[in-house]
């Protein structure tokens, strides 16, 4: 009944709005459009506008102020000839691959463990999620102490008599990146676990029952039935973890300051240094544009898969 009257009421309105397309665009659901306006402006001005500004000025020879003249791709040529930037990109790639693989795998395994109807699940979940509530600066500082040979774990082991024990990842330029990965994992795994756990919990229990009746071992059920069903959660997690990796900056600053030398430098730190410390805006913006391009390379295929034309999935 209620639906019928609603339909009857809305019909004349539809007819009256049909002649004017403009009316449809601007006045229909007016209050909703007004409410959305600030966010629309934010997106247009801050996200799109500022990104465009950055890209445009990366083609200039601006110094401390954005006033230089157009120099084409000169900043990019310089960028890719700079060993520091290439090195930082390599660092980020190594960190990214290791961090992505391990947070996803470890996070998923932890979620599976959590899902076994264990006791004190809430406690474990809180403990594991807690690092995520800390800022990267705190995480960095804590791990800097833990991994410092003079007063961290190595010192403790040394005092206990294990004089050959070494835990000095941060002071060795070959291993410093693994130190970063460990601190990053400690911070991010809990969050991945919580997302994955939510995904696991959304799977109907009857699926599990059906799989047990079919005699499918638990690991195969996870691999071939449950994980494919969690596709949405997995992709969302990948995007969140991935974007966190690309903008990696504060952890590096707190943990190593990019050192020893430039052994743990990352693109975001390169950008910051050139823009604010060295007064070379053009170079910094060129580097940041490269980061933007990287993010787009990740995001566009994802958006296409998630929101694009639906195939028969």
């Amino acid at each position: 009944m209620a639906e019928a009257t609603l339909a009857a009421q809305s019909k004349p309105e539809e007819i009256s709005t049909r002649p004017s397309l403009l009316h449809n665009i601007f006045l229909r659901n007016l209050s909703a459009k007004i409410a959305a306006l600030p966010m629309v402006l934010t997106v247009l001005v801050v996200f799109v506008g500022c990104s465009a500004w950055s890209v445009i000025y990366s083609f200039t020879n601006s110094g401390s102020l954005p006033s230089g003249k157009f120099v084409g791709f000169a900043q990019y040529e310089r960028l890719f000839k700079t060993a520091r930037f290439v090195g930082s990109a390599e660092n980020l790639a190594l960190y990214g691959v290791l961090s992505l693989v391990f947070t996803m795998v470890v996070g998923f395994l932890l979620a599976v463990l959590m899902d076994q109807k264990i006791r004190f699940e809430n406690t474990f979940r809180t403990v594991l999620l807690y690092p995520f509530a800390l800022s990267f600066i705190v995480t960095g500082l804590v791990w800097q102490w833990i991994m410092n040979p003079n007063y961290g774990i190595q010192k403790v082991a040394f005092d206990l008599g294990f004089t050959n024990f070494r835990f000095d990842l941060l002071t060795n330029s070959d291993t410093v990146i693994y130190g970063l990965v460990i601190a990053g994992l400690w911070q991010g795994t809990g969050f991945v676990m919580v997302l994955m756990l939510a995904g696991l919990r959304s799977i109907d229990e009857e699926i599990w029952k059906a799989a047990r009746i079919d005699g499918i071992p638990a690991w195969r059920t996870y691999l071939q039935i449950v994980i494919p069903m969690m596709r949405g959660v997995v992709i969302t997690t990948l995007v969140i973890v991935g974007s966190g990796i690309v903008r990696l900056y504060d952890l590096v600053v707190a943990l190593t300051q990019g050192g020893p030398g430039f052994a743990s430098d990352v693109p975001a730190k390169y950008v910051y240094d050139y823009m604010f410390a060295r007064g070379n805006l053009g170079q910094g913006l060129a580097a940041s544009t490269m980061m933007l391009v990287t993010v787009l390379i990740i995001l566009i295929p994802w958006a296409y898969i998630e929101f694009g034309p639906k195939k028969n999935k």
Partner: peptide
């Protein structure tokens, strides 16, 4: 035994043929 559930509990990523045969394949 074989069991049929209220929510059907089909494996959504598999075709009907795979749904029917999956348990047998695994065995």
């Amino acid at each position: 035994i074989g069991m049929v559930f209220q929510s059907y509990a089909l494996y959504p990523q598999m075709t009907v043929e795979r749904n029917l045969s999956f348990g047998l394949r695994v065995s």
